[in-house]
Design a protein around this nucleic acid. Sequence first.
DNA 1: GTCTATATCAAGATAGAC
DNA 2: GTCTATCTTGATATAGAC
Lengths: 210, 210
Amino acid sequence: MAKVSFKQQVLLAREHAIVSSVNRLLAEKGYDLMTVDEVAADVGIAKASLYKHFSSKEALAAAAMIRLLDQALEFVRGLAGLQPEPSPIDRLRRVARWTFEVQLAGEMPSLPAQNSSLRAALAANPAYLDRLMSLSEVLGEWITLAQADGSVNPRLVPEVVLYTLFARACDPVLNLLKAGGRYSDDDIIEMLLATCFDGLAGRGREAGQA
Amino acid sequence: MAKVSFKQQVLLAREHAIVSSVNRLLAEKGYDLMTVDEVAADVGIAKASLYKHFSSKEALAAAAMIRLLDQALEFVRGLAGLQPEPSPIDRLRRVARWTFEVQLAGEMPSLPAQNSSLRAALAANPAYLDRLMSLSEVLGEWITLAQADGSVNPRLVPEVVLYTLFARACDPVLNLLKAGGRYSDDDIIEMLLATCFDGLAGRGREAGQA
DNA sequence: GTCTATATCAAGATAGAC
DNA sequence: GTCTATCTTGATATAGAC
């Protein structure tokens, strides 16, 4: 275990603060509309100083995406270690619930839509891809198990289920509902879980918790 | 009925071509990444000429959004006139199917995400708002009817159902599946309809068509 | 590693001739 | 209304002093 000097700790704390600002701004405005000037102002340092820590705007965003994936992996691995072990579908529901809570907290960066320049940068970032694949692997296993026991529709290819979970993690519906201001966070979460897992028709569980 | 001169017809045709290019570019890259230079190049005229037809980039995008909403209204009104009349849930499923087909054709502009400058412009555009409200009204009625007969989950507030339909119309899942290239357009549509209406759990209709 | 000041460039919009 | 050429701005990124 390497010794970490006080100076290094200060630097790490600063980088953590930078990534937090980036993450919030990504959630708020998206990559294209987020400016490096804003990030610097939000952190409270000069723009040139930012560039000493991160070499580009893309690197800033990638760091935020990587930290989020690390948090997701941590949550998912926590689920895997629970006793008694929740059923596969329950684990999937808890993951979805977690993503909704992150969204409600204003900490879910909007997906690098379509041809964003960020998309290409992420697709070439091994650290990002590594985490994305780890997460997909775990979720993919759970999906397969849930389809085997019938709690997830076996007629859907697993890809669709996985992509849907990722897509719901930054679904605009949540923000529209929240902006309306007419429903509690808990109500929003329950309704989104219902539409995601039981559909608009909703012939699934008539009541219950995730 | 005013007489439309030949010259005016040519102008209208050109504007139609412009809007078509904008629509495709919006679908491909989104508002922020679409440049006016690209639009001009795609249409085959000079940028300054574009500005004789549309006063700003926002006006260009708004025109495309309005035309799309008009097409949606036309489709929806066609459904309302069918004999025999489809059930409310079937009408909703057909609308969703239509939005998937538009996406597959590469003609669905990505929603003005979050704080896009376009969002503010659209929110201040009466022509756009008028169409959006007309569409929402029709769909809202069908949703209420479908909830009354139990074919849409009555425990969901109608807002959630409406927002979900709009959100699925530009859901990234479809493009991810299409980019994968492993499934036919028909398979993609059927799976997306299933996840949207019957959920990932899929306890709804075990087979059938929309 | 932090700052101020600046280089550089891409993109929205316009001038002015035809 | 179409064009070429240009203006202007805002944003990424860097120079260079401390």
